[in-house]
């Protein structure tokens, strides 16, 4: 076997880091969409990813629907869960404080996890990769076709969201809710609908993340919490409420983990990423791209 050069090793770490980071970024974007409208950190975000993967397994593997039908069907199902989450867990809370909202989303995530365990059992599931598993060789590094799909979907999500928030009336209305909900309702925006919509969007993005992650790393009912923590880390690193921040945060976290594991000590790779996160926060308390005002709004 030929020896792998240092340059291709580094390139491989970068590719791996960016792929893992893209998943974190998608979770982070989901966090941000809800946060921007409601200032809620939805800790059930990881559960959307899990449901995306598991429901796709059901439609595509168990029922045997072709991928082009199973994909949207899965996204719609998870979106419905998102709406239910808003209706059943968030909206009924009469005196929302940051703590009660956090506990509500934790409670919801536990319920979803429990139901997923009853339905799918405790074993992991696999999905076939979208375009086979024959790796592509590039500059001595290997790239799974699925990695390309991950990057591609991240790009598509970013483009669509940008168009949505900047070009459509509903998107602009959502941004308005984010800036000032009272003023938004004064000009006739239905804030409740906007909140529902934010849950829909972020559930849909979570579902997409789950669908494309499962062929790489399998999926089981118990994955949500870890994904939520990583996504939350990415959001905070990038700056709460900032979409470019979420993407940057996710990619940076993934890359640090990958380089940390490859070059320094794999047991401590998560710690490296978190130390970097703390260092950023201590220097710039609102994250890499966050605005100072946002950090001042809420306390516990």
């Amino acid at each position: 076997m030929e020896k792998i050069t240092l340059a291709s090793q580094l390139f491989q770490y970068l590719i791996t880091g960016l792929t893992v980071g893209s998943i974190y970024a998608m979770v982070a974007i989901g966090f941000n969409i809800i946060y921007n409208v409601t200032e809620i950190i939805n800790l059930a975000q990881g559960e959307f990813v899990v449901l995306g993967g598991l429901i796709m397994v059901f439609f595509h593997v168990a029922v045997g629907l072709p991928i082009l039908i199973a994909f949207p069907a899965t996204v719609i199902m998870v979106t419905l869960v998102g709406i239910l989450l808003d209706r059943l867990a968030i909206r009924p809370i009469r005196q929302p404080s940051v703590l009660t909202l956090i506990i509500a989303t934790i409670g919801a995530s536990i319920v979803i996890r429990g139901i997923a365990m009853i339905i799918w059992g405790k074993d992991p599931f696999d999905l076939p990769a979208f375009s086979g598993r024959t790796p592509i060789n590039l500059l001595g590094a290997v790239i799974q076709p699925q990695y390309v799909w991950v990057g591609g979907f991240l790009l598509v999500i970013v483009v669509l969201l940008t168009l949505f928030f900047e070009k459509t009336i509903i998107g602009k209305a959502m941004s308005a809710c984010a800036d000032n909900p009272d003023a938004a309702s004064l000009v006739g925006i239905n804030v409740k609908q906007m909140i529902s919509l934010s849950f829909c969007l972020s559930a849909a993005i979570g579902a997409v993340a789950g669908i494309i992650l499962t062929p790489i790393a399998l999926m089981d009912y118990n994955r949500g919490a870890m994904l939520a923590v990583k996504g939350f880390g990415a959001v905070v690193l990038g700056g709460l409420g900032s979409f470019p921040g979420a993407i940057l945060g996710g990619l940076v976290l993934g890359t640090i983990e990958s380089f940390g594991a490859g070059l320094i000590h794999s047991g401590y790779k998560d710690a490296f990423a978190l130390i970097a996160l703390l260092a950023v926060l201590f220097i710039k308390p609102s994250g890499l791209l966050g605005s100072v005002e946002v950090t001042k709004i809420k306390k516990f």
Binding site: V98, V229, F232, V236, A271, L281, T295, I297, K299
Partner: peptide, 28 residues
Amino acid sequence: VPSLKLRGHYLAMATLAFGIIVFIIFNE
């Protein structure tokens, strides 16, 4: 000293990160 300058969710994440780092040390 550095963390409590942070607010809201930033403080939550900073303390969460600290907790995970300590856990990793116990483990490793």
